[in-house]
Simulated scan of single mutants.
Amino acid sequence: MRSSRLAVFAALPVLALGVAACGDDEDESASTTAAPAETQTTEMAASEDIVALASGNDDLSTLVTAVTAADLVETLQGDGPFTVFAPTNEAFEALPAGTLDDLLKPENKEQLTEILTYHVVPDEAMAADLTDGQKLKTVQGEELEVGVADDGTVTINGAEVTTADVDASNGVVHVIDEVLTPPSS
């Protein structure tokens, strides 16, 4: 089943390194709408795709390296929309010693792909559209949980969205402060 998800993902025209609402009726009872008061919102040239946008941001260079190692560049340059929750270089550095180096090895490409696709939702979700307790199904196949604090701070599985709503031509990027790990990993 896992390899079929990967095959389906590989056939997608765009990599989803982020999260967006899937339209499931799960947890529609959530009533708090995100209004990212403390979260920095950035508008960038929406003419750039997700990879070009990330490549132009020094704080996302490790993510770009990982996407390249997983052969997901072409996918992320395809049509969307996608929501990508993009971990910063600092987030990757916070992983246990040696973890990133191991993930970047060719023999660990499948595990790296699982982790990266867990950061992507096959839809576009702006921060203000996210609700507390909302579940977002990822391209990897598992769900992420949205948290929205009273002050408007948005979290994804506990990782804080530090920069929200960065428009790309094929979706939106939200920068996060942690690398998300699928429960199945």
Score class of each variant (00 low, 15 high):
residue 22 C to P: 10
residue 94 A to N: 06
residue 164 A to G: 09
residue 65 T to I: 05
residue 177 D to P: 02
residue 176 I to E: 04
residue 43 E to G: 10
residue 42 T to Q: 12
residue 71 D to G: 01
residue 51 V to G: 04
residue 153 T to A: 05
residue 135 K to V: 08
residue 21 A to S: 15
residue 11 A to S: 15
residue 7 A to E: 14
residue 52 A to H: 09
residue 57 N to H: 09
residue 145 E to S: 08
residue 76 L to W: 08
residue 179 V to C: 01
residue 24 D to P: 04
residue 16 A to H: 14
residue 11 A to G: 15
residue 181 T to W: 00
residue 147 G to I: 00
residue 9 F to A: 15
residue 35 A to S: 15
residue 111 Q to L: 15
residue 8 V to G: 11
residue 2 R to P: 11
residue 160 E to I: 06
residue 180 L to M: 11
residue 115 I to H: 01
residue 89 N to V: 00
residue 3 S to R: 12
residue 182 P to C: 10
residue 137 K to G: 09
residue 169 S to F: 09
residue 3 S to W: 14
residue 128 A to Q: 14
residue 39 T to R: 07
residue 69 A to L: 07
residue 84 V to N: 08
residue 73 V to E: 11
residue 63 L to D: 05
residue 105 K to G: 09
residue 14 V to E: 12
residue 150 D to P: 00
residue 8 V to D: 14
residue 21 A to N: 15
residue 177 D to H: 01
residue 34 A to G: 09
residue 184 S to A: 13
residue 143 E to W: 12
residue 31 S to R: 15
residue 90 E to M: 09
residue 35 A to Y: 10
residue 141 G to Q: 09
residue 40 Q to Y: 08
residue 25 D to Q: 10
residue 173 V to A: 06
residue 171 G to R: 07
residue 159 A to S: 10
residue 91 A to D: 00
residue 136 L to V: 13
residue 138 T to Y: 05
residue 124 E to D: 08
residue 50 I to N: 00
residue 13 P to G: 15
residue 146 V to L: 00
residue 167 D to G: 02
residue 98 G to S: 14
residue 155 T to M: 03
residue 76 L to Q: 13
residue 94 A to Y: 01
residue 71 D to M: 01
residue 140 Q to A: 03
residue 58 D to V: 14
residue 180 L to N: 07
residue 51 V to M: 12
residue 91 A to M: 01
residue 11 A to N: 14
residue 93 E to P: 05
residue 54 A to H: 06
residue 95 L to F: 00
residue 10 A to R: 15
residue 92 F to L: 07
residue 147 G to S: 04
residue 98 G to V: 14
residue 59 D to C: 02
residue 14 V to W: 04
residue 94 A to V: 01
residue 130 L to T: 05
residue 63 L to R: 07
residue 49 D to E: 08
residue 38 E to R: 12
